[in-house]
Design a protein around this nucleic acid. Structure first.
Lengths: 214, 214, 214, 214
DNA sequence: CATGAATGAGCGTTCATTCAT
DNA sequence: CATGAATGAACGCTCATTCAT
């Protein structure tokens, strides 16, 4: 391994360390109330150091969200590639699992997928970042929409705009997570979210099926 | 009209004027990024003047949310009182209408029903305010849960915890509104939200019904 | 009584009403923390009205102090005129009584005789006011100094600069009042100040007497 | 010298620099009129920097006063420990010297020993601070009272409450300092205060002695 | 004359960001 | 590369003062 690579890897480890700390702090306090000092302390670094790895607070924040988006995108691409043959209903079941995995993977980022849409925040990000986020968001929603498109074509789901179905899945999921996070605090959160999500998916799936499939 | 009444009315008009401006600014920028200066400018007043009508930024914000809560509560109480005889499915339809009306009435406040749960924000509000908000929130969720309880008892809806249904309705609705508001900007928003909400309710209702009712 | 006089008298009553309220508020909160609104409320008037009678907050404050100074001056002039014949020691006794009366008359003003010396505050007062305050302050200290001068001449008091004696009396008195006001609160104040003042005067008088007079 | 020690020392120097500037500004303008900006400018720093060293304006102010209290306490403890054998009169003489030293050490803080009693100000200080100030204040007054108690027991001073004597010493001293500071400005102050204090102590001492000791 | 709504200047405080070491 | 001291811009809020009614 060349010196250059080792440096690169070292740098990634540091970014990781910061990211992990930032997630905890952002989740606990929200974007505005989380200070760079807080995050630095959590990462056992100094505030100034954060700026060696991230352009500014917004970019640190966005990079975290980007990770979940990449995670989601990767998993969805995987269904398409490896499990193209399973039924649309089964795909929906897998989608639920993926979202719950994403929830375990990074609650905060999921919650704040919304915020990232805000023009105010986007303005402070570098161009590449914005482009990347937009692209990956599009891929994800397309991927989900594809599931429904297939289901509609096969006569399994009721005939509606596939993009609308995708949107409902995403925003419903986010809504419940956000609501639960707002209500509860501490460690008992996850226990409550999962059953609710299970219920919602059960209901949504049933509601989306054509009569004869119910 | 006595001089006292006129004064009172004049004062209400000012509060209204500030409220309207605040809603616009809070919606556009979010609570933290909206400055009192911004709001004052929008209301064509000076920042100091806002404090003649609202104790502080948080109370201004909360008062806006309180209005929607009151609106929702009033409408829901109305169903119970005047339309107790209609079927649970029909009540769900009415609930949808009420939520869409609330959405027209005040988008921002709906979006931020979440935030108001946060202890941080509640701490800065006056005691009466907190009490009123908590009470009214409880009434609303209870009212919605009642619809489902009745539906379950009558064997119309599948047997799940009524409170969970209520939660799903509220958080799903909020999730979609929040998501849409985040994505779009300006005036074309409402056109998109309504059809999506219609669709969600259609799906949710169907998914909640017992087999024989579908 | 002409209309003009009646108006004049009416005006004086209003000033009196404001002065009384202001004294209470200034005493309770101190100059900076007392707001014009507070004073107005206490006087059962509106804040704006205060400005019809006093140029600004500082002048209202100064006018109160001036009253005590006038009171002190009047009483001291009285000793000189009517009781020129009593011994210097007796005059000291009378001086003590006068100061205690002034204390009853207006605690706050006495406490703040100091503040009025501050160039910062003087800058905000009108010229006439400043002149009047300076003159009357000089008269008072001269009057007190005279008592000691006489005492020294008659061989009753030890031979020191009469002005220094005067200064000691005034600042000692103020020091004790200020200290006590700082320490206690509410209504039990006066009970403590008087015995302490009595003791101080007893000690000071004894300490000032020439050996053979002790 | 380790790097840690150097840092610590550097930090202390900065605090010192701020303290010195703050003393000047507080003395010139009083607590309320002195702005953090003023103090920062005097210390050739930015306002924000002050908050790296002191929690807030009140704590900066209190820390200054605390220093004098500690100085006084230390010196008084010294008399008790090392010079327990000298006569009460001699102790009074030493007390005078100590107070004059404290005056040289920090005029402003002495003047404002009063303010620190105010509940309003105390409320804004951290708990440890309050406790420390209260304790040290108590120690000082007790120490002074002890001198008088001894003097009374030995039949040197007239029989009065020792605490009252202590109070008189402290408030008289403060009264004179405050009065003089109010009257004069700039650099000629100290020249006037000292002779007056000398005189007051001379008079007080004589006035406190029992007949036969005079 | 009296009001009180409105102003606007000013203050204490926070915190993202920079930069000398 | 890492630090953390320092900055300075910004914000919420208060209140003396003004002025139209």
């Amino acid at each position: 391994m060349g010196i250059r690579e080792r440096k690169e890897r070292e740098r990634d480890r540091r970014k990781q360390q910061i990211t992990v700390a930032a997630k905890r702090i952002f989740l606990a306090r929200g974007f505005d109330k989380a200070t760079m000092e807080d995050i630095a302390r959590e990462a056992e670094l100094s505030a100034g150091t954060l700026y060696l790895y991230f352009k500014n607070k917004h970019e640190l924040y966005a990079s975290i969200t980007l990770k979940v988006l990449q995670f989601l995108n990767m998993r969805l691409a995987h269904i398409k590639a490896e499990r193209a043959d399973i039924s649309p209903e089964a795909k929906l079941e897998v989608l639920k699992e993926i979202l719950l995995d994403a929830y375990d993977f990074d609650v905060m980022a999921l919650i704040n997928l919304f915020h990232l849409q805000s023009r105010e925040i986007l303005k402070k990000l570098s161009q590449e970042f914005i482009k990347e986020i937009k692209e990956i968001t599009k891929q994800i929603t397309d991927e989900i929409a594809d599931i429904f498109e297939e289901g509609i074509e096969k006569g399994v789901f009721i005939k509606r705009h596939p993009a609308a179905f995708a949107q409902i899945i995403i925003s419903t999921f986010s809504g419940i997570v956000l609501w639960e996070e707002g209500k509860r605090s501490g460690d008992d959160k996850k226990g409550y979210v999962k059953p609710t999500i299970e219920l919602v998916f059960e209901i949504l799936t049933k509601g989306m099926l054509k009569e004869k499939h119910v």
